[in-house]
C-alpha cells in the first residue's frame, strides 16, 4: 500500500464551484437569447453592465481588503450574480440603477461575509430587494415585449404593469395561456419565459446542480395557496396560472432558491426551506406593498437556514435512534 501524505480534504468530488457556476451560466445565456428576442439589444447591454459592475465590485473589495491573491474571478460567482440580477430587472431600467443594485449585491450582501460560499444571504435577492425599495416605480414598469427598446428610455417608450401588478390591484390580466408560457407578457426581461425557465430547471436537475426539494416545495405551497385563496374569484385554475407564471416566482424558484450556499444541507431541511419561502412569498404578494415578494421571502428564509438545518438534523437523529431501538428489540425477540 502506498500512502500519500497530503493535506485535507482527502475526499474529492467532480463538481467544483466553477462547474456549478458554469451550468447556471449556460442556462442564463438561454434566457438572454429570449430577452434579446423580446426587447432587443438593450437587454444584452443591461446584462453586460450588471456583470461588469459585479466583477469590478468584487475586485474592488478584494483589493481594499488586501486579498490580492483572490482577485481573479475563477469561480465565476460574480458573473452569475450579475446575470441573475439583470434577468430579474425590467428591460427599461436605467443603467445607473443596474450598477448600484449590483454594487449593493456584492459589496453589502456578499463581500463582508467573506469569500465565495460564506455569504449568509443570496446576493442577487438582496440586490433586487434593494432595487425594489429604491426604484419601486421603475422596477415594476415594464416595456411591451416584441418592441425593440432604444438605449436611452424616454417618454416615447410605453411602460405597462405586469400581470402580477394587475392581480394586486384586483384586475384580471388579459393574457392567454400560451402568451404566459412563452413569456409574451410584460415583466422582468428574463423571468417571464416559463417554458425556457422550466427547461433550465430540468437541465440543472439532470446535471445535479440543483436538488428538486426546494423548487418542488416552493411551487407546491404557492400553488396550494393560490388555489385556496384565489385572487381571480371566478376561476381558481386561472388564478393559479397567473400567480405562478406571471411574475418572477418561477425564476426565483429555479435560480435564487437553489443557491447551494444559502440553502439547508439535508433533504427535510430543504423541503421546509422551500415551503417556508413559498408561504412567505404568497403572504408578501397578497398583503405586501409590492407585487413581487419572492426576493424578500428568500432573504427572510436565508436567515432561517441554520434553524432548518438544526431541525432537520434533530429529525434524522430521532429516526436513527428509533431504528436502532427497533433493531435492538427485534433482535432480542428473535433470540
Amino acid at each position: 500500500m502506498k500512502f500519500k501524505p497530503q493535506q485535507p480534504p482527502h475526499i474529492f468530488h467532480t463538481d467544483s464551484n466553477c462547474s456549478i457556476m458554469g451550468d447556471v451560466l449556460i442556462t442564463t445565456v438561454c434566457l438572454y437569447f429570449m430577452a434579446f428576442y423580446y426587447y432587443g439589444i438593450r437587454s444584452l447591454l443591461i446584462g453586460l453592465t450588471a456583470v461588469v459592475a459585479c466583477c469590478l465590485s468584487q475586485m474592488l473589495y478584494m483589493t481594499l481588503m488586501g486579498k490580492k491573491d483572490e482577485i481573479s474571478l475563477r469561480d465565476w460567482s460574480p458573473i452569475v450574480t450579475g446575470m441573475i440580477i439583470s434577468l430579474m430587472l425590467p428591460a427599461s431600467i436605467p443603467f445607473s440603477a443596474v450598477i448600484i443594485i449590483c454594487m449593493f449585491a456584492i459589496l453589502v450582501a456578499k463581500a463582508p461575509f467573506g469569500r465565495t460560499g460564506e455569504n449568509l444571504f443570496n446576493p442577487a435577492a438582496a440586490g433586487i430587494a434593494f432595487g425594489v425599495v429604491c426604484w419601486g416605480p421603475q422596477m415594476f414598469s415594464y416595456p411591451q415585449p416584441m418592441h425593440s427598446l432604444p438605449l436611452i428610455i424616454d417618454e416615447s417608450v410605453r411602460l405597462v404593469s405586469n400581470p402580477s401588478s394587475m392581480l394586486k390591484l384586483g384586475g384580471i390580466p388579459p393574457y392567454t395561456f400560451s402568451e404566459v408560457i412563452f413569456g409574451n407578457v410584460p415583466g422582468p426581461m428574463g423571468a417571464t419565459n416559463i417554458l425556457v425557465i422550466t427547461a433550465c430547471l430540468i437541465f440543472l436537475l439532470c446535471r445535479g446542480t440543483v436538488r428538486w426539494h426546494q423548487p418542488a416545495a416552493f411551487i407546491a405551497v404557492c400553488t396550494v395557496f393560490a388555489f385556496l385563496f384565489p385572487r381571480i374569484s371566478y376561476s381558481r385554475g386561472q388564478s393559479v396560472l397567473f400567480e405562478l407564471f406571471s411574475g418572477s416566482l418561477m425564476f426565483a424558484a429555479v435560480f435564487m432558491l437553489n443557491d447551494p450556499v444559502t440553502s439547508p444541507k439535508r433533504e427535510i431541511g430543504r423541503l421546509m426551506y422551500g415551503a417556508a419561502a413559498g408561504f412567505i412569498t404568497m403572504l408578501a404578494r397578497y398583503f405586501g406593498s409590492f407585487p413581487q415578494g419572492a426576493c424578500f421571502a428568500i432573504l427572510l428564509v436565508n436567515s432561517m437556514c441554520l434553524l432548518f438545518d438544526i431541525f432537520s438534523e434533530k429529525i434524522y437523529t430521532m429516526k436513527r435512534r428509533e431504528l436502532r431501538e427497533f433493531k435492538f428489540t427485534f433482535g432480542k425477540a428473535i433470540r
Binding site: S96, C134, W135
Partner: peptide, 9 residues
C-alpha cells in the same frame, strides 16, 4: 433625479 430612497429606511 439621483436618489437612493432606500437609505431612508
Amino acid at each position: 433625479s439621483f436618489k437612493l430612497s432606500g437609505l431612508a429606511f
